[in-house]
Simulated scan of single mutants.
Amino acid sequence: MRILATLSLIALTLVAAGAATAADSDLRQLATGDDVRAFRAVGRLEIAGQGFCTATLIDTRLVLTAAHCVTDEAGGAVASDVLVFRAGLRDGRADAERGARRVVISRAYRPGALGTEALAADIALIELDRPIDPHIVAPIPAGAMSGVRIGVVSYAHDRAERPSLQQECRLLAREAGALVMTCDVDFGSSGAPVLRFDGAVPQVVSVVSAKAEADGRKVSVGADIAHVLPALRAELTSSNGVFWRSADSGARPETGAKFVRP
C-alpha cells in the first residue's frame, strides 16, 4: 500500500457533508466458515512469495486488484507466474488456490505518479490459470458506486492470516475517478474490494489504492472501477499478453504528497 503523507480535501467535491459525523463500524475478523461465507471470493494475492495484496474474484476466472500490486519498482509488470491467488484464506487454508495466466493493467496507470488522477487508474485484472468453481467460491460481481455507505474486506500486515470486514464506512469525496473514504486499511490492504451492500448480493465498486491523512483524519483512497473495468475486460478478450503503461519520462505533477510501498 502506498501512503499519501497529506491529502487536501479542499479541491475535492464533497459527496455528503452531513456524513462526516456518522460513526463507522469497527473491523471484525472473519474467523469461521459462517463468517466468511459471503466473502470467500476475497483472497490474498501473493507476489513471488515475498509480499501480498488483497484481491477479489469477480468472475470464475477473473481477479481484481490494484495495479501497483503487480508492477515492480522499475514500473514493469511482474511475471504472471509469480502470482498466486488464495481465495478465502484463513489460518493457512484457502477455499481455492490458483496461479495467474495473464495480467492487464489500466493503460492510464503511471507507476509512481502522484495525485488522485493516478490513483483512479490503479486497477489491474488478472486472468487465472484455471477457473474456480462458483459452487465452491461464488464470485462477487462488479457494480457502480451508489450513495455514500460502503464497506471493505481486507487482509493487512497485522492480520495476514484472516480477512477482516468493516461493514460500514463512508465515501467522503470523489475526484477524477478516485474515491476518498473513511475505510480502515493498512499495508496489505492494497487491492481490497470496497463493497456496496444495498442489493441482494454485495458488489465491488472500488479497489483500495492508498491511505492518507486529510484534515487530521485518516482516510483511504480507492479507484472507482465503473469506467475502467470494461476496458480491462476488452483488453483481456482481444489480446494474449501483459499490458501496462509506464510512467511518463517528463516531470510529475507536484501535489505535496509522498508515496511509499510496503
Rank of each mutant, 00 (worst) to 15 (best):
P139C: 02
R86V: 04
A108W: 01
A48K: 12
D186E: 14
I136W: 01
N240G: 15
S80A: 15
L4G: 11
A100G: 10
T6V: 09
L30M: 10
G18I: 07
F243L: 12
R2S: 10
T6L: 04
A156T: 10
V242Y: 02
L128W: 05
E73N: 12
H68V: 10
A192G: 09
A5E: 11
D122G: 00
V137Y: 05
L229Q: 09
I136M: 04
R261S: 03
V221Y: 02
P134A: 02
V42Y: 08
V148E: 10
V148Q: 06
R102T: 09
G199L: 03
R162W: 11
A173P: 00
M145Q: 12
R149Q: 10
V42E: 09
P230H: 04
I47W: 13
D224K: 06
V204I: 02
L83S: 10
V104H: 00
V137H: 06
S154A: 14
I136G: 03
E127G: 04
R233T: 09
A77F: 07
C53D: 11
D34C: 06
Q50Y: 09
A66M: 06
R44Y: 12
D35L: 11
H227E: 15
Q203N: 03
L7E: 06
P253N: 01
S8F: 07
G256D: 00
D129T: 06
R149P: 02
E73C: 07
A118N: 03
E168V: 07
V185D: 04
I3S: 12
R28D: 14
L119Y: 00
A200R: 10
R28Y: 08
R90K: 12
S106T: 05
K258F: 02
S220I: 06
V42A: 10
R86T: 11
P141G: 00
M181I: 07
P139Q: 04
D186H: 12
L83G: 11
D184F: 07
A120F: 00
V208W: 04
A121G: 02
H227Q: 14
T21H: 12
A55K: 09
E161A: 15
S239P: 03
A100V: 13
Q50M: 14
Q166G: 06
V70C: 10
P262D: 03
V207E: 00
A41S: 15
R149M: 04
G177V: 06
F197E: 08
I105D: 00
Y109M: 00
L62A: 06
G250E: 03
G151N: 03
A212K: 01
A212H: 00
S239T: 15
A144M: 07
T54H: 11
I126V: 12
A121T: 01
L172K: 09
L114G: 01
A11H: 07
L89Y: 11
L4C: 07
W244D: 01
F187T: 13
G51P: 05
S154E: 13
R107D: 15
G115P: 01
L83H: 08
L12N: 14
S190K: 04
S238R: 14
W244S: 11
A16D: 15
G76E: 09
G222P: 02
R217Y: 06
V194R: 02
V205F: 03
T116S: 02
E161Y: 12
P230V: 02
L57T: 06
Q167A: 10
I136T: 11
A87P: 14
R93D: 08
V70Q: 10
V104T: 00
R37W: 05
